[in-house]
Design a binder for these strands. Structure first.
Length: 554
DNA sequence: GTAGGGTTAG
């Protein structure tokens, strides 16, 4: 009999990989043997049903149990919370107060998490109060949930206050606080907390590193990312597959593809997300051939790409403007039933139009079963790229009529359409509507389109004024666009001003110093040209990109 | 004699 118990226990514990059918078989067996009267088995079964998304059966097991342990209560509350049935989770929690059993620290942790997932700050405060009243105000399990919940809802100061109440915080509490600061945008404070933790003798684990790596959003922070990578090697955390995967995506995000690849290569069996990070990284860095190479390589193995991966592979193809592999993937999409996926279909629309096959993109768009803002943005931008501005305006109106809210990308697409068709008046109007009617802040991309539109239609002064109205430092893409407009309309005085501005706002980028020095030389102002050159080269006469030597052009 | 809290990428 004892052997059978062991077998049952392990069967019930490996619930993630078991099917619903297996759950029902075990349920029947437990009923026959009267083992369900033991709350231990009832708890296991509730968890098994919950893992297989059968919340109804889970509740039935709970409901029919005569003796309910705190484990059983917690399991059913967690089952409701994790399937986003927050009201049911909370009302069960309330019922618990009337029952003959009291919530424990795990109950509170679970309900706190539910309040957070439901963005219910008011309820979070109430539950926090109840937890303190029940004596869990300094319990590490309850408090780590509080720290995470407060910071996720944007109240990182409250999170820190909870943390401060604990005399000897454990690693989980530190991790919650660090990632709390990082995900609310205070990356430096997160780093400070991390250093403090190490100072008081805390040893980071995979979660600590994951929290910090999430804050490395662009290549300017890459050296810190590399430091964290070094730390993971030193602490032996690189064998944690999550850490490896996060390093791949961090390096990919910063376009450090050689490093991304070397980490990827060291992972034993990379999962889909890791593959996808690598492929998207190559695609974003302009290495489209490699992106496709790894997409094909993934296909040859036993892993099957999902919708997100297909969409990012299609984005790589769109950038490469190479229709061949695009057809290949479209075939794959049809064979595997991904057509109904709105992400995939929108990526197909975008891919076809960027490869020059607008009619194919339009066809995909027309037969899409579901359309969202991304699909409309794809078709609006596709039409715009092919010079069909009026059709793209029509699509915009259709989108509004459907009640969809435009976003930044919609206006990029519309302004791009105006640029391609040279529609200055429409462009101005769209730019104003974006800000006034839809309350969307103009991003550098929008200004770039406006500058190109105005500059190429002979309204250089207006473009210049628009850029000068921006607060410093002005994004270099905007200034770059303005500079090329100045150059093509032969306005050398204005070009010099803009180059000067580019140089001043990017003092560390030698490309701008070289450019300005060339401009001075072209104007015959050799002293100024030389001064600037010597400042960057430290007296050396040669510098890549420099188009002059002492007193003459090369 | 048994079990649960924090994190996670494209």
């Amino acid at each position: 009999m004892l052997i059978r118990f062991h077998w049952l226990q392990s069967e019930l514990s490996n619930c993630i990989c078991k099917s619903l059918l297996r759950a029902k078989q075990l349920h029947a067996l437990l009923l026959r043997t009267h083992l369900l009267e033991d709350p231990f088995y009832a708890t296991k079964l509730v968890r098994l049903y919950a893992a297989n998304n059968d919340i109804h059966s889970a509740y039935q097991v709970f409901d029919e149990s005569s003796t309910r342990s705190v484990y059983l209560w917690n399991s059913i509350i967690r089952a409701y919370a994790q399937s986003s049935r927050f009201d049911s989770a909370i009302s069960l929690f309330r019922t618990m107060f009337g029952a003959d059993i009291s919530p424990d620290n795990y109950t509170y942790a679970c309900v706190i998490g539910a309040c957070c997932d439901n963005f219910d700050f008011g309820m979070l405060r109430l539950v926090h109060g109840a937890a303190v009243a029940s004596g869990f105000g300094m319990d590490p399990i309850c408090c780590s949930a509080l720290v995470a919940a407060y910071s996720k809802l944007g109240f990182v100061n409250d999170a820190h206050r909870v943390f401060n109440g604990i005399a000897a915080p454990d690693l989980v509490l530190w991790n919650s606080l660090i990632s709390g600061y990082v995900c609310s945008g205070s990356w430096e404070i997160g780093m400070r907390m991390f250093n403090w933790m190490r100072h008081v003798g805390g040893k980071p684990d995979g979660f600590t590193l994951a929290g910090l790596l999430g804050g490395i959003t662009d290549s300017s922070l890459m050296s810190i990312g590399q430091g964290l990578h070094g730390l993971s090697l030193k602490s032996g955390l690189d064998s944690d597959s999550h850490v490896g995967s996060l390093l791949v995506s961090t390096y990919s995000r910063c376009k450090c593809m050689a490093s991304a690849y070397s980490v990827f290569f060291s992972i034993f069996q990379p999962d889909l997300v890791t593959w996808s990070a690598l492929i998207a990284g190559y695609s974003m860095s302009g290495e489209y051939e490699k992106a496709l190479f790894y997409f094909r390589k993934l296909n040859k193995g036993n892993k099957k790409p999902d919708s997100v991966l297909i969409a990012s592979a299609l984005a790589a193809i769109a950038q490469a403007a190479n229709i061949g592999p695009g057809y290949e993937i479209h075939g794959y999409v049809i064979r595997h039933g991904f057509e109904s996926d709105v992400k995939v279909s929108s990526a197909l629309v975008d891919m076809y139009s960027k490869c020059g096959f607008l009619h194919l993109g339009t066809r995909v768009f027309r037969i899409m079963p579901e359309r969202n803002i991304v699909s409309y943005n794809s078709i609006i931008s596709g039409l715009g790229l092919h010079g069909c501005a009026s059709e793209s305006f029509k699509m915009f109106d259709e989108m509004l009529a459907k009640g969809l809210m435009p976003d930044e990308a919609t206006f990029c697409a519309l302004l791009c359409a105006c640029c391609h068709a040279g529609l200055v008046k429409d462009g101005r109007e769209i730019f104003h509507r974006m800000k006034d009617e839809f309350h969307i802040m103009a991003m550098p991309e929008h200004y770039v389109y406006m500058v190109k539109l105005l500059g190429s239609a002979g309204h250089l002064e207006e473009a210049y004024k628009l850029v000068q109205s921006l607060s410093e430092p002005v994004d270099k893409a905007i200034l770059g666009a303005l500079l090329s407009c100045c150059n093509s309309s032969g306005n050398s005085k204005m070009a010099e001003n803009v180059a000067q501005q580019l140089f001043e706002s990017n003092p560390d980028d030698n490309a701008y110093s070289v450019m300005l020095s060339n401009i001075y030389a072209g104007d015959g102002r050799w002293d100024e040209a030389k001064n600037l050159r010597d400042r960057i080269t430290g007296g050396q006469r040669k510098m890549p990109g420099l188009s002059w030597t002492e007193g003459s052009f090369c």
